[in-house]
């Protein structure tokens, strides 16, 4: 191999890198809108709870958790309708957005994966859960409560999986982290007998009290939903700012 061949290879690689970066930026600059739409849907779901931010003396929790989190909802059917109308609307808006971008830029994203995953998991939940009817009274003995996996019958799970699918379609590690964060919070909050319950080892780590029997965070569903939506809002703001700076990079 001559040094000219080597220099040519360096030039080709640099050119390919530039081309890759440019195409990647152009293709994935539109990810801010679906991320923001998911965040808005999460934040709007705070309206489904009777007391989303204020502390409440008594709470009656209906299972499955159609509002999303195990707390007192205004009406199970309202929650049910919210997600089963909201998620298809979100998918339709996302499809319109990506269709418009594809016509304008000539570049397509694998957004049907996001749509299929979000709707598919939601439909699966509906099939598994059928209709909301079981009531869990506070103070119920632990052994009478359903297993932790019952808590996974929540629309928030379909949102988490849809965000992970969006991350794959948009090749975004930041979106993947946001999806994993929503999944983690959902698994913890819906898998515990009480909202925000902490295991003894968790309270030990937090340094509240060594050798305690556990604890509970004094946060309400609204606070948790804000925490879930926060990474998506930050992602959307950063990506939208970038796409304004480099609209056709």
């Amino acid at each position: 191999m001559s040094s000219t061949d080597g220099k040519r290879s360096v030039e080709i690689l640099a050119e390919l890198d530039r081309l890759r970066d440019r195409t990647r930026t152009r293709t994935h600059n539109g990810a801010w809108l679906p991320a923001l739409a998911v965040a808005v849907l999460l934040l709007a779901s705070t309206a489904l709870y009777r007391t989303p931010f204020a502390q409440s003396r008594t709470t009656v929790v209906h299972h499955p958790y159609w509002a999303g989190l195990p707390d007192e909802q205004r009406h199970p059917v309202l929650s049910y309708v919210f997600w089963f109308v909201g998620v298809p609307l979100l998918v339709a808006a996302t499809g319109t957005w990506y269709g418009w971008r594809a016509r304008r830029l000539g570049l397509r994203v694998s957004w049907p994966l996001f749509a299929g995953t979000g709707l598919g998991v939601l439909l699966l939940l509906a099939v598994v859960a059928a209709v909301p009817r079981t009531e869990i009274q506070p103070g119920t003995l632990v052994d009478q409560q359903p297993g932790w996996w019952h808590g996974m019958l929540t629309p928030l799970l379909s949102i988490a999986v849809a965000v992970l699918a969006l991350a794959w379609a948009e090749r975004s590690p930041a979106l993947a982290a946001a999806g994993a964060w929503i999944a983690l919070l959902t698994a913890w909050l819906c898998g515990s007998p009480r909202l925000g319950e902490l295991a003894p080892w968790a309270t030990d780590i937090l340094g509240w009290q060594s050798g305690s029997l556990g604890g509970q965070l004094a946060l309400r569903p609204g606070h948790y939903l804000v925490l879930m939506a926060l990474p998506l809002v930050v992602f959307a703001a950063v990506r939208a700012a970038r796409s304004r700076r480099r609209p056709d990079a």
């Binding site: 050119e15 081309l19 890759r20 440019r22 195409t23 000539g106 570049l107 994203v109």
Partner: peptide
């Protein structure tokens, strides 16, 4: 071949690319 490498690189970053977009790019 340099052009073919460019074509494959652009296509690797997207699900599908329009003929006209690739030509201009």
């Amino acid at each position: 071949q340099r052009v073919r490498l460019g074509i494959l690189t652009v296509l690797s970053e997207t699900r599908e690319c329009k003929f006209a977009t690739l030509r201009d790019e």
